[in-house]
């Protein structure tokens, strides 16, 4: 754990004694955080443990639909963990134990009978590091719909005249355009996706996710490995996507969070959600001293 501790300068560290009070005060404050739209995801008292390691502590927050929610916080504070709870990717980690509730459109995600396939179709995810499949660009995009049986271009489909090649082509173009990648790969759709640059791969992964037509898109530091130009492209995209989708994005970059998000949640070391409010409020006038220190770059 020690290596995930933020590097702090002793003198600037907020007094330990006030931290607890602040927490209680702000916890009430953001709990009543009100937003205009409908609630898409409602998280209530979420605890995550990795073995004995308590990675997320009683996190509650409501995420409004068709907006961008930024998650910020120092490394190791549990942002990725939180994100993975929303589409239950944490189920894959054997040591992880999850308590609490996450509701998608009012339906509990952590209950018996939840169809993980359906859940993940609705809550898509773009990972921290680009992870295209070692297939062609086209196959990467059509992968999801093909697995879900929405598109069939297989041998059998062709033989029986159920071939969806045209629909597939349209889908590929639509998804790639949405991810601002179409112009760059238009004439090499059949090349292996591994040959793309890091930034292109990241946008390909976004396109692959969009092709499944999710309602929520989770993005884990989508721009961490990218140069400023590619980053700007992704940022524009995120803002555009918010018109149709609910976007939750993790970022280490405060300016980025301030630029693209409608509301921001600040996690601090130890897995606590310290403050959650309108982005403007978080960056200009946060309730908590620790959040102010963090977003102004004093620590973390």
């Amino acid at each position: 754990m020690s290596e995930t501790e933020p590097v702090t300068n002793g003198t600037e560290r907020p007094a330990e004694t006030t931290a607890g009070e602040t927490d209680e005060r702000t916890r009430e404050a953001w709990r009543e955080y009100e937003f205009a739209g409908e609630t898409k995801l409602a998280v209530e008292d979420l605890d995550v443990y990795y073995g004995d390691d308590h990675a997320l502590k009683r996190v509650s927050m409501d995420i409004p639909e068709e907006s961008v929610t930024a998650l910020v916080g120092p490394s190791g504070c549990g942002k990725s963990t939180f994100l993975r709870c929303l589409n239950r990717m944490n189920d894959r980690i054997g040591t992880a134990r999850i308590d609490g509730s996450v509701e998608l459109d009012g339906q509990e995600v952590y209950q018996d009978g939840v169809d993980l396939v359906e859940l993940r179709k609705q809550v898509g995810m773009v990972f921290q590091a680009p992870n295209p499949f070692p297939k062609s660009i086209r196959d990467n995009i059509t992968y999801g719909p093909r697995q879900h049986g929405d598109i069939d271009t297989g041998l059998l489909a062709r033989l029986t005249g159920r071939d969806d090649s045209e629909a597939a082509d349209r889908l590929v173009e639509r998804a790639l355009r949405q991810a601002a990648l179409w112009d760059e790969v238009e004439d090499r759709l059949d090349d292996n996706a591994m040959g793309l640059s890091g930034g292109q791969q990241q946008r390909l992964c976004l396109a692959r996710c969009l092709a499944v037509d999710p309602e929520v898109i989770l993005m884990d530091e989508p721009a961490s490995a990218l140069d400023p130009i590619a980053t700007a492209k992704i940022e524009d995209l995120v803002e555009e996507l918010a018109e149709e989708y609910t976007v939750v994005v993790v970022t280490h970059n405060m300016q980025q969070a301030a630029r693209i998000s409608d509301q921001t949640a600040v996690f601090l070391t130890g897995g606590e959600l310290v403050e959650y409010d309108d982005t403007g409020k978080i960056f200009e006038d946060p309730e908590s001293q620790r959040v102010e220190d963090y977003v102004s770059g004093k620590f973390g």
Partner: peptide, 12 residues
């Protein structure tokens, strides 16, 4: 990461 990539798209 490749396997998670597939699962996150909603495959079994």
């Amino acid at each position: 990461s490749m396997k998670s990539g597939s699962l996150a798209l909603g495959t079994t």
